[in-house]
Design a binder for these strands. Structure first.
Lengths: 347, 347
DNA sequence: TTGTACGCGTTATCAT
DNA sequence: ATGATAACGCGTACAA
């Protein structure tokens, strides 16, 4: 049996409640008794029992992290280094505030849902961070209905957006910027290859892309817009289709570096030289992006900061400072590398 | 206030203890009362309180995951997709056995140590999985001294190896195989670029490398063996030094794909063509390895399985089936891609 | 300022 | 087969 508060009390010749107060650093306790009790705690190697404490407190000082659904293989969500970085950001803030991290990575929608139920109803965590955002998500519904403290990394579906605290980049704006950048290089035939079309982030980036081209009176043929979940096959297939077109694009706007990696590879296999024959731009500036060949022009979205701010926000929510839902926008920046260059007019 | 077991008891007109037994599916309870109680539970939306349960049980059904130390930037450990994959493997098994995951990613040795103390002494977790292995690690010492159930992913330091359950590849053997493979291509001047030299995995791979060459009576000059922690600078610097040598190597044996990525890039910048002028082999077969240019010849170490087996092992330890420490070896396989080819004799 | 006594929600041990 | 009751370890009114 481990050392409890009672053991300390007995040894220090005080009441258990006094020990409890010393732990909480209650100002009503004399420095002298504090010293004494702390010494005994040290000597006996006392550590508060997490569960007893949580039970009495009705608070756990832990945060639940919900990862997006991820099949065991093939599907790129889990392989995407994005998540490792967000979690690092979350972890960093959480740690500074003495919060612990609970993580759940379900393989089906049902698993995720039941995990969240366990966390929330079972009172395992005080708040939750959702690392994905989908239309009509039961998890999201459940959390809002129970007004459980949570924040979302990404942008919530339109219809519930104003009731939710979320941390996101301005994907629409930066997509416009990025498209504008391609236009400024002289590109007019630009294709779009994005992740799953239900994902809000994909929608946002697509919207920025399309709107900018529309504003420049450039119409985008339907065959120029593609969605895929998979790194390799998706990239290869999309590229094949794109190149088979009568009027192939001169640039590709990709929504994720992992996807872009596959595309760069497919292009290479087809013998298409980047940036000479095809330009590529992408998002996230993942760690390998500067090491692709050629190095990728991409958008720095500050993943770490995304996580950090998310953690800060849940903790605020939990501790009820500033209760009203809000949106935190993390800045972005286009990092120009070698997959883009001014379009040469071929005569 | 949430619904408790007492509420259910009152509503179903039974005693709290009966409800508890229904939850545990105790065979001594009539099917009839079980049905009745379950119906009420359903209706009222009952969920067991995690902490109350853990307090009474002295078990938490959760596993702590300890990540290696990771500075916020620069250091490649955290950026390495390896960890995401192991965690996925752990998560998969843990989920199947209804275990939850607690994660800690400290930024200093002290943080990690105190996190582990909190987990263990605070009884937050029933077992721990260590995702790294170092010489003279206080965490390892603490866990063994308290005979707390834990397993290590990787190989424990020599002196404590027989007392510890661990999951690992046979890095020594596969390094020999890999070196042999390079020899069979005709390479004799092979350099080694590895991660931090304190890391057991680095040592193992280096040993396999050196032993094989020694067996073929090939001596390795000291300048051929390099260690680095950083992706980019490390790779660049090592390559510069290697190429400046009077007798530069014809092949490089790298211990990690992330490192190899940087090296491939550095080589490219120097205008050295791979595999024509330099061969490269590496380890881990990370998701991007087939997309590097050229695609990397590397060792598949089955990261997911490493995690899966680790989880299975802690659970076994926790539930006291097969208590004696053991070593589980996950198979490996050399994946030959395009960074290697038979050495052409230049006349 | 410190001690007493009860509650937090569950499980386990006795009874019945 | 079911019920009453005592832990599990800690926090906190309330009393002193």
């Amino acid at each position: 049996m481990a050392i409890t508060i009672k053991d300390i009390a007995r040894e220090a010749k005080v009441a258990p409640s006094t020990v409890s107060r010393v732990i909480a650093d209650n100002p009503k306790i004399t420095e002298k008794t504090k010293k004494k009790v702390r010494k005994v705690m040290e000597q006996m190697g006392y550590y508060p029992n997490f569960h007893a404490r949580n039970l009495a407190n009705r608070a756990t000082k832990s945060i639940g992290i919900v990862m997006p659904i991820s099949a065991r293989k093939g599907n790129n969500t889990f392989q995407n280094p994005f998540f490792q970085d967000v979690i690092k950001g979350i972890s960093s803030f959480a740690h500074s505030e003495d919060y612990s991290l609970y993580i759940t990575t379900g393989e089906t929608d049902e698993e995720i849902y039941s995990d969240v139920m366990k966390m929330v109803k079972g009172k395992r965590v005080d708040g939750i961070i959702l690392l994905y955002s989908r239309e009509s998500d039961p998890v999201l519904e459940f959390l809002t209905d129970n007004s459980f403290p949570f924040v979302l990394v990404g942008k919530p579906p339109e219809d519930v957006r104003k009731n939710i605290t979320y941390v996101d980049n301005d994907n629409y704006a930066v997509s416009r910027e990025l498209t504008q950048f391609l236009l400024s290089l002289g590109h007019e035939r630009i294709a779009f290859i994005g992740g799953h079309e239900k994902l809000i982030v994909t929608k946002n980036r697509l919207a920025g892309f399309l709107d900018t081209l529309a504003l420049s009176k450039i119409s985008v043929p339907a065959e120029y817009v593609k969605h895929t979940d998979f790194i390799m096959d998706g990239g290869k297939k999309s590229i094949s289709e794109l190149l088979a077109l009568k009027v192939p694009p001169t640039a590709i706007f990709v929504t994720d570096d992992v996807l872009a990696l596959g595309i760069l590879n497919a292009l290479h296999e087809k013998g298409i030289s980047v940036p000479d024959e095809m330009n590529v731009v992408s998002f996230n500036n993942l760690f390998f992006s500067e090491f692709t060949s050629p190095p990728l022009t991409t958008v720095e979205v500050n993943i770490y900061q995304l996580g950090y701010e998310a953690a800060r926000s849940v903790v605020e929510l939990i501790e009820e400072r500033g209760n009203s839902p809000k949106c935190i926008t993390v800045p972005t920046e286009i990092v120009v590398r070698k997959t883009t260059e001014p379009l040469m007019i071929k005569i």
